[in-house]
C-alpha cells in the first residue's frame, strides 16, 4: 500500500468502486493495514450514492480501526445529504480539494491507494454475512427507528462481504440482540414473523413454480408412523464444511451446515436441515416421519427435496447444474403444507 500524509492521515480513493458492496469491501481491505490505525482518513467516494445508514456503517468501520474520517469527497448529492446529517465534513471534487500536503513528491503517491484484487475471496462471504447483517440492522435502527426494519432490513442485497474487523462485532452484536428480543418475544418469534411478513407481502408462497410434487409416500416404507414432533428439542449437528458429491451426512437430530452442499451429496436428518450456502444435493428432513421438519438454505437448488414421506423434484425447465455465488441470495424454506412440499421465500423490495 502506498502511503502518504494529510495531517497525520491518508487519502483513500474508492471512487473506482462500482457499487456499495465493492466499496465497503475495498475499504475494509485497506483498513486492515496496520498503518491506518489512529490516523485521519480522507475518503474519495466518487459518484456513488450512499444512504445515511450506509455511510454510518462506513464511518463505524473506520472508527473500529481507531481511525477517524477527516472529510469526504463526493460528486453525489445523496451522499452529500447523508454526510451532512451525520456531521461529516465534505469537500467537493469539482471545487478543488484543499488537502494540506507535507511533501509534493509524496502527494503523487498519496492520491491513489490501489484497491486490492478480491477474486477468490468469495468463499469467506458466508462467514461474514452474519456480523455484517447485524451491523446493517443497527444502522437502520439508528436512522429510521422503525422497529420492524431490524428484521426486514430493507435492502438485504446491501449486505457486504467484509473481513471482520476486531471491535466491530463487540460494538454491535450485543445491542442488536437486545433490540430484537424487545420486539419479538423469543417463544412465538416464528409466528409473528410469518403473520407480519405475509401481511407486508414480504413472503410469497411458491407452489407450482419452482418445485413440482412428483409423488407421495414413496420415500419411506409405509410402516413408519408420521408424526409432528417439535424439532426444537432435538440435538443439532454443526458442520463447517463444503459437502461434496458422494458425501452423506446422517444425524438423529437437526443438521446445520455452514457451507455449500454440492450436487450429488445427501443430507439426511431426523429434524430440520439448514444450509448456510447453496443447497444443491438431496436433502431429506424428518427422515423418520416427522412432517413438521423443514429444509432451509440461502439458495434452495436441491435436485430433490424430501420431507418425511414426501418428495419434490426440481423442475426440468430449471436445469441449472451450477448456481453462481452471490451476496444477494434470499433465504428459502421448504415445509409440508396440506400434503404438499411448499417453499417460502422472502421477497426483496427493490
Amino acid at each position: 500500500m502506498e502511503k502518504g500524509f494529510i495531517e497525520n492521515g491518508f487519502i483513500i480513493n474508492l471512487s473506482t468502486s462500482r457499487n456499495t458492496n465493492q466499496l465497503i469491501y475495498e475499504l475494509s481491505n485497506i483498513l486492515e493495514h496496520p498503518d491506518v490505525k489512529g490516523k485521519r482518513v480522507c475518503l474519495k467516494l466518487g459518484s456513488i450514492d450512499l444512504k445515511q445508514s450506509q455511510l454510518l456503517s462506513i464511518k463505524a468501520l473506520i472508527e473500529a480501526t481507531d481511525a477517524e474520517i477527516a472529510f469526504i469527497e463526493t460528486t453525489s448529492e445523496q451522499t452529500e445529504v447523508s454526510a451532512t446529517s451525520l456531521g461529516i465534513s465534505i469537500s467537493q471534487v469539482d471545487n478543488g480539494i484543499d488537502v494540506p500536503v507535507q511533501d509534493e513528491k509524496e502527494e503523487l503517491e498519496t492520491d491513489i491507494i490501489p484497491a486490492t484484487d478480491h477474486i477468490g475471496d468469495e468463499e469467506e462471504d458466508d462467514d461474514n454475512l452474519e456480523s455484517q447483517r447485524t451491523k446493517e440492522d443497527v444502522a437502520d435502527i439508528n436512522s429510521e427507528e422503525t422497529e420492524y426494519k431490524i428484521i426486514f432490513a430493507e435492502e438485504i442485497k446491501e449486505i457486504n462481504p467484509i473481513n471482520t474487523l476486531d471491535g466491530i462485532e463487540d460494538t454491535y452484536t450485543e445491542s442488536s440482540q437486545e433490540e430484537i428480543s424487545q420486539i419479538i418475544p423469543a417463544e412465538n418469534a416464528d409466528a409473528d414473523f410469518e403473520t407480519f411478513a405475509i401481511n407486508e407481502g414480504l413472503i410469497k408462497k411458491e407452489e407450482a413454480g419452482k418445485y413440482i410434487l412428483l409423488d407421495t409416500g414413496d420415500v419411506l416404507p409405509t410402516d413408519i408412523a408420521e408424526n409432528t414432533k417439535d424439532t426444537k428439542d432435538l440435538p443439532t449437528l454443526y458442520l463447517n464444511q463444503t459437502l461434496r458429491s458422494g458425501q452423506t451426512v446422517t444425524y438423529e437430530g437437526n443438521i446445520l451446515i455452514i457451507g455449500d452442499a454440492h450436487p450429488g451429496s445427501e443430507i439426511i436428518a431426523e429434524g430440520d436441515i439448514t444450509v448456510w450456502g447453496i443447497l444443491g444435493g438431496i436433502a431429506h428432513s424428518g427422515c423418520k416421519g416427522n412432517s413438521s421438519a423443514k429444509v432451509r438454505a440461502l439458495k434452495l437448488n436441491a435436485i430433490q427435496l424430501r420431507i418425511a414421506g414426501l418428495y419434490a423434484r426440481r423442475n426440468d425447465t430449471l436445469n441449472v447444474p451450477y448456481v453462481q455465488k452471490s451476496n444477494n441470495f434470499t433465504p428459502e424454506e421448504a415445509q409440508i403444507e396440506n400434503g404438499k412440499i411448499v417453499i417460502y421465500k422472502k421477497l426483496r423490495r427493490d
Binding site: 414413496d218 458422494g246 435436485i303 430433490q304 423434484r313 426440481r314 426440468d316 447444474p321
Partner: peptide, 17 residues
C-alpha cells in the same frame, strides 16, 4: 458406483429415488 453420470446425460438426475 460413486461416479455416476449417465443420469446427467439423460437429464434424469432429479427423478432418481
Amino acid at each position: 458406483l460413486g461416479l455416476r453420470n449417465l443420469d446427467l446425460l439423460l437429464g434424469l438426475e432429479n427423478r432418481i429415488v
